Measured scan of single mutants.
Amino acid sequence: GETKIIYHLDGQETPYLVKLPLPAERVTLADFKGVLQRPSYKFFFKSMDDDFGVVKEEISDDNAKLPCFNGRVVSWLVSA
Protein backbone atom coordinates (compact mmCIF):
# COMPACT_ATOMS: atom_id res chain seq x y z
CA GLY A 1 0.00 0.00 0.00
CA GLU A 2 0.83 3.64 -0.35
CA THR A 3 -0.27 6.60 1.74
CA LYS A 4 -0.61 10.15 0.45
CA ILE A 5 -0.02 12.87 3.02
CA ILE A 6 -0.97 16.44 2.21
CA TYR A 7 0.60 19.08 4.40
CA HIS A 8 0.11 22.82 4.72
CA LEU A 9 3.18 24.80 5.78
CA ASP A 10 2.87 27.94 7.94
CA GLY A 11 -0.17 29.38 6.19
CA GLN A 12 1.13 28.98 2.62
CA GLU A 13 -1.79 28.69 0.22
CA THR A 14 -0.78 25.62 -1.77
CA PRO A 15 -0.34 22.39 0.20
CA TYR A 16 2.49 19.92 -0.38
CA LEU A 17 2.10 16.21 -1.11
CA VAL A 18 4.35 13.35 -0.02
CA LYS A 19 3.81 9.64 -0.57
CA LEU A 20 4.91 6.94 1.86
CA PRO A 21 5.26 3.29 0.78
CA LEU A 22 3.14 2.09 3.71
CA PRO A 23 -0.57 1.34 4.16
CA ALA A 24 -2.37 4.29 5.79
CA GLU A 25 -3.26 2.38 8.96
CA ARG A 26 0.46 1.80 9.70
CA VAL A 27 1.88 5.29 9.12
CA THR A 28 3.26 6.96 12.26
CA LEU A 29 4.42 10.49 13.02
CA ALA A 30 8.03 9.22 12.93
CA ASP A 31 7.52 7.94 9.35
CA PHE A 32 6.18 11.35 8.29
CA LYS A 33 8.96 13.29 10.07
CA GLY A 34 11.57 11.04 8.45
CA VAL A 35 10.43 12.11 4.98
CA LEU A 36 10.11 15.81 5.80
CA GLN A 37 13.31 16.64 7.70
CA ARG A 38 11.65 19.63 9.39
CA PRO A 39 12.61 19.40 13.07
CA SER A 40 11.26 22.65 14.53
CA TYR A 41 7.59 22.29 13.68
CA LYS A 42 4.43 21.29 15.49
CA PHE A 43 2.30 18.76 13.63
CA PHE A 44 -1.50 19.00 13.45
CA PHE A 45 -3.70 16.46 11.67
CA LYS A 46 -7.26 16.40 10.38
CA SER A 47 -9.06 14.20 12.87
CA MET A 48 -12.59 13.24 13.89
CA ASP A 49 -13.75 14.06 17.41
CA ASP A 50 -16.97 12.56 18.79
CA ASP A 51 -18.05 15.86 20.36
CA PHE A 52 -16.83 18.42 17.82
CA GLY A 53 -16.67 16.63 14.46
CA VAL A 54 -13.70 17.44 12.22
CA VAL A 55 -10.81 19.10 14.09
CA LYS A 56 -7.08 19.75 13.78
CA GLU A 57 -5.44 17.55 16.40
CA GLU A 58 -1.84 18.07 17.51
CA ILE A 59 0.21 14.87 17.56
CA SER A 60 3.65 14.86 19.15
CA ASP A 61 4.22 11.16 19.96
CA ASP A 62 6.48 9.73 17.24
CA ASN A 63 4.87 6.28 17.67
CA ALA A 64 1.31 7.58 17.20
CA LYS A 65 -0.58 6.35 14.14
CA LEU A 66 -1.77 9.23 11.96
CA PRO A 67 -5.50 9.83 11.47
CA CYS A 68 -6.58 8.81 8.00
CA PHE A 69 -9.53 9.78 5.76
CA ASN A 70 -10.15 7.71 2.61
CA GLY A 71 -6.54 6.50 2.62
CA ARG A 72 -5.18 10.05 2.91
CA VAL A 73 -3.66 12.03 5.76
CA VAL A 74 -4.11 15.82 5.95
CA SER A 75 -1.76 17.85 8.13
CA TRP A 76 -0.69 21.36 9.05
CA LEU A 77 2.88 22.21 10.09
CA VAL A 78 3.26 25.23 12.34
CA SER A 79 6.62 26.73 13.35
CA ALA A 80 7.30 25.86 16.97
Rank of each mutant, 00 (worst) to 15 (best):
F52Y: 12
V54F: 14
P39V: 11
S47P: 03
K42W: 02
T14I: 13
D50L: 07
V73S: 04
D50Y: 09
W76F: 06
G1C: 11
F44K: 01
L66A: 01
Y16M: 13
W76V: 05
R72C: 15
S40N: 14
F32A: 04
P21C: 08
I6Y: 15
L17R: 08
V35I: 10
P39A: 10
V35A: 14
A30Q: 07
L36W: 02
D61Y: 03
D49G: 12
D10K: 02
Q37T: 12
K56P: 06
A24T: 06
R26C: 11
D62L: 05
Q12P: 04
T3R: 04
V78Q: 06
F52E: 15
V55I: 14
V74Q: 02
V55L: 10
D51C: 10
D51L: 09
E58S: 04
S60K: 13
K33I: 00
F44Y: 12
K19N: 11
S75I: 07
L9P: 03
K46R: 11
F52L: 15
D61T: 00
E57S: 10
V35E: 07
Q37E: 13
V27Y: 04
P67H: 01
V27F: 10
K65G: 07
V27C: 11
V27A: 07
D49K: 14
E25K: 07
V78A: 01
A24I: 07
K33S: 06
N70T: 07
Q37C: 11
V74T: 13
P21A: 10
L9Y: 05
E13S: 11
Q12G: 14
F69C: 10
D49Q: 12
I5D: 00
G34T: 12
R26T: 10
L22M: 12
Y7P: 01
D61H: 03
E2N: 13
K65S: 10
L66F: 07
I59D: 00
L20K: 04
V18H: 09
V55P: 01
K65W: 01
L66W: 05
D51R: 15
K33A: 00
M48Y: 14
A24W: 09
W76L: 01
A80H: 11
V74M: 10
L9I: 14
P21K: 07
T28L: 02
V55W: 10
Y16R: 14
N70W: 04
V74F: 12
P23M: 00
K33D: 00
P67E: 07
V78I: 10
K19S: 14
S75Y: 03
V78H: 12
S60I: 08
V74E: 14
L22W: 05
A30D: 00
Y41M: 06
H8N: 04
F52M: 14
Q12A: 11
E25M: 08
V18C: 05
D10N: 06
F44I: 04
P67R: 06
V78R: 08
R72L: 15
W76E: 01
K42T: 08
I5A: 01
F43K: 04
F69G: 05
G53T: 13
E2T: 11
T3W: 02
R38S: 14
F45I: 00
E57P: 07
F45T: 05
S60D: 09
K42M: 04
L66R: 03
I59V: 08
S40H: 13
A24C: 11
F69M: 10
N70P: 04
K65M: 09
F44M: 01
V18P: 06
F32C: 06
G34Y: 08
K56E: 07
D10C: 03
S75P: 05
L20S: 04
L17T: 15
L22P: 04
L36K: 02
F32E: 04
S40I: 15
D50M: 08
A80C: 12
R72S: 14
K46G: 09
G34A: 14
V73M: 02
F52T: 14
E58P: 00
V74S: 04
E25I: 04
G71E: 04
G53N: 15
E57K: 15
A24N: 07
G53M: 12
P15I: 01
P67K: 00
E13L: 07
H8K: 06
V55H: 15
E2Q: 10
W76T: 05
L36S: 04
K19L: 10
P39T: 13
W76C: 02
P39C: 09
